[in-house]
């Protein structure tokens, strides 16, 4: 009883101090604040290069901030793995702390998988868990303060001028207080050290491609070569005059839909997370204090939901691939 209120009080003072600091930095009330208007950070879709020398000398393979983000996400997942495995090895019946939360999440996901995949649960569930945990780690690592904000100042053509404001060198959008003397005509932007890997299309495409490939693998494992008839359905082409042709056409459409799944997976996650990041930028530049906190909460939920949705869609498609499709097509053809 005595421990918790103390911590709360401590946190309350931190929040108050942050608010006062924010007000001091970003507003010019009563002439005491610095009145630094936050600029709209540059929005750059690919991962930004941290260095101009390619890794291992491979063409185009530069160290980017999303690569650092990938390392962070991996680190989180590996730490969770260590925590969970050591927690289970210690013989406890119920895990505590973070590994307990992971266990609760995975138990829920296991329940969903069991309800959908049936006897293939044991094979499908690790993919579900991997994708969900990795994407969740990537999404939530983007919410850590300092992410996408602390970095090196680089020259950037769509950036803002770099000016001297008293003792500080800052990127300034320009306006009344611009010291024209120090303006050298070049534009700059901050390249952050860290950016969540789920805002990198390479990551989302890699996940999507692996997921779709594994869906096909599960299809072949469960049905053998009969799985091919899903895409190349010549069984009824000549026996049924019109419906056979329709069945064949549906098979081709299924083949196309497998490729559209890749796009859909990749862009859903990327779009959500990238849009979330842009949203935070925009809100931060419009209302310097308070408002961003609300959108942090929103991003928290979006990150969780997108992670679960990515994993769950993969799981559902895998489960569908393990079940027969022949009779399903018949129904569709006659509907």
């Amino acid at each position: 009883m005595s421990e918790k209120p103390k911590k709360r009080v401590w946190a309350r003072w931190v929040v108050l101090a942050a608010i006062i600091l924010g007000l001091f930095l970003f507003t010019g009330f009563f002439g005491i604040g610095l009145g630094i208007a936050p600029i709209m950070p540059h929005v750059y879709l690919p991962g930004e290069k941290l260095s101009e020398t390619p890794i291992l000398g491979i063409e185009g393979f530069y160290p980017t901030n999303t690569l650092v983000g990938l390392g962070l996400a991996n680190l989180i997942v590996i730490l969770l793995a260590v925590g969970v495995s050591s927690g289970v090895k210690s013989g406890k019946m119920v895990l505590t702390g973070i590994s307990g939360a992971v266990e609760a999440l995975l138990e829920m996901l296991y329940g969903i998988t069991e309800g959908t995949a049936g006897k293939w649960t044991k094979q499908i569930f690790p993919w579900f868990a991997t994708i969900t945990l990795l994407v969740l780690a990537a999404n939530w690592s983007g919410l850590v303060p300092g992410n996408e904000t602390i970095g090196l100042i680089h020259e950037y053509k769509n950036g803002h001028p770099l000016i001297q404001a008293g003792p500080l060198t800052t990127i300034w959008e320009g306006g009344a207080g611009v010291d024209v003397e120090s303006y050298d005509g070049k534009k700059y932007a901050v390249v952050p050290f860290l950016r969540p890997v789920s805002t990198d299309l390479n990551f989302t495409f890699a996940l999507a491609v692996v997921a779709v490939v594994m869906i096909q693998v599960f299809g072949f494992r469960s049905q053998g070569m009969a799985y091919m008839t899903k895409f190349w359905n010549t069984k009824t082409l000549f026996s049924k005059p019109i419906f056979g042709v329709i069945d064949f056409g549906v098979g081709i459409l299924e083949l196309i839909s497998e490729f559209s799944k890749i796009l859909s997976f990749a862009f859903r996650l990327f779009g959500n997370m990238f849009a979330g990041a842009v949203l935070l930028f925009v809100i931060g530049s419009l209302v310097p204090v308070f408002a961003q906190a609300m959108f942090y909460l929103l991003e928290f939920f979006v990150g969780l939901i997108q992670a679960i949705v990515f994993g769950m869609l993969t799981m559902v498609f895998m489960a569908q691939a393990t079940q027969g499709h022949g009779e399903h097509h018949e129904e569709e053809a006659h509907a």
């Binding site: 929005v43 309800g115 862009f267």
Partner: peptide, 23 residues
């Protein structure tokens, strides 16, 4: 479960729009 799946599919359309806009 099915509702979240359905929302994800429906939301995907909006995300495509957003991606196009961002591009």
């Amino acid at each position: 479960t099915n509702m979240i799946l359905g929302i994800a599919f429906a939301e995907a359309i909006a995300i495509y729009c957003l991606v196009v806009a961002l591009l």
